[in-house]
Amino acid sequence: MTATRPLPTPTRMTATNRLSAAGRMLLAEINKLLTLPSLRTTFLLTWAVTLLLRLVDLPGSILVHTQAGFLIFGVLAASHEHDRGSQINSTLLAMPRRLPLAATKALALTLVTTPLALLVTLTAAEPTGSGPGAQAGAQAGAQAGAQAGAGIEAQAGIGAGAGAGAFHLAVDGAAHNAGYLILATLAASGAGMLLRNDVGAAGVALTAYLLVAPLARARLPAIETWLPEAPQPSLAAAVWTLTALSVAAAAFHHRDA
């Protein structure tokens, strides 16, 4: 700041890209998520822990534990706006329409989380087989293999079919479980947006998913269908996510920044 330089001419600002308002918002929100160091660290730790638990051959689902990492990821994605420095002011100055912004934030987080969730579920390699998709995949793979091998040698064909089936089973199980992790991440981001504080929101999200849901499931079978259960995506998991996001968006819309 030593001397006043002339400002560029205003005409320059009209030569901008042709993205729609929604596209510009999405680009900005994805950009924010990808350049936040704490999200990168959280994901790498989550992945490392998943790999570690896989290697020690833990009984039961690994993802029941590593969903904690995704819950933190979701909280930080939303609450970082309110950290010291008040980035939320910049966000609302740049994108002042709050409900479209809240929806865009959820979409951006889904797009960023999807490949990360897939990477973790593939690492966990839990073809639970309980999902209908996983079973259908295994059967289709076996059938296709059997048909292809019919003309040559039935035995070899069935072998190839079983291999393809196992592969489908693994990928299908991973995709299935990733769906659960994405839903949990989005619900946690709702807590982050609502509470505007990373520690508080992390406390709420972790308590709800790691303590309340499993305990209530064990003690209160009557409400079982309304409780999410890792790592299965379910109507209950979707309802929890939609509720968290809706309540957070309504608060975001109505209160002062």
């Binding site: 600002m13 030569a15 901008t16 890209n17 993205l19 510009r24 918002m25 680009l27 900005a28 929100e29 950009n31 924010k32 350049t35 936040l36 160091p37 704490s38 970082h80 706006e81 950290d83 010291r84 420095g85 008040s86 980035q87 002011n89 910049s90 100055l93 740049a94 994108m95």
Partner: peptide, 25 residues
């Protein structure tokens, strides 16, 4: 008040997402 930037983000990264949000080059 303040910079309006998240403290863990670089100045350039902060300005880049802001530019993207309004379609600025």
């Amino acid at each position: 008040d303040g910079s309006g930037a998240h403290r863990a983000r670089s100045a350039r990264a902060h300005l880049r997402w802001m530019a993207a949000s309004n379609g600025l080059p």
